[in-house]
Simulated scan of single mutants.
Amino acid sequence: MNNRYCISSSKYRQITLSESSLPYYTTPHGPCASGTFGTQEYDNAYCFFSDFWPPSAFPWIDRCHSWPQPHVVDDIVKNGCHFVAIGHKLGNHEDHEWRISFSQAEQKLVYIMNHCQFLTYGLLKLILTEIINNGVSDNDKLLCSYHMKTAVFWVIQQNAIPHWCPQNLLGCFWVCFKLILKWVHEGVCPNFFIPGNNMFLTKIHGVKQHQLFIKLSDLYEKGLAFLLHCPSIRSCIIDVLYNPRNFICTDDHTLISDYHFDLYLFGESLSSFIVLDKDDIQICIRYLHTIEQMIGSPLLTQYQVIMLQNMTATVLQFTAFILHMETYTPDNKLRYRADKMSCHMLKLAAKFGCITDMLYIAMYYYKTLRYTEALSIIEMIKVK
Rank of each mutant, 00 (worst) to 15 (best):
N2P: 12
N3W: 04
T27I: 10
P28G: 10
Y42F: 09
F52Y: 13
W53N: 11
S56R: 12
P59G: 04
D62I: 03
H71F: 15
D74K: 05
D75T: 14
H82I: 10
F83W: 15
H93K: 05
D95Q: 07
V110L: 14
Y121H: 11
G122A: 07
E130R: 01
E130Q: 08
N134K: 12
L143I: 06
L143C: 09
Y146R: 15
I156D: 11
P162Y: 08
G171H: 09
K182Q: 15
K182G: 13
W183T: 09
C189G: 02
P195F: 08
H210Y: 11
H210P: 06
L212I: 04
F213N: 03
L216Y: 00
D218G: 07
E221S: 07
E221M: 08
F226C: 14
C236V: 05
I238F: 06
L241P: 04
N243M: 10
T250Y: 03
Y264L: 14
V275D: 02
D277E: 13
L288Y: 01
I295R: 12
G296D: 07
S297C: 03
A313Y: 02
M325T: 11
T329S: 13
K333S: 05
M341R: 07
S342Q: 00
L348K: 11
Y366L: 05
I377H: 04
I381P: 11
V383I: 09
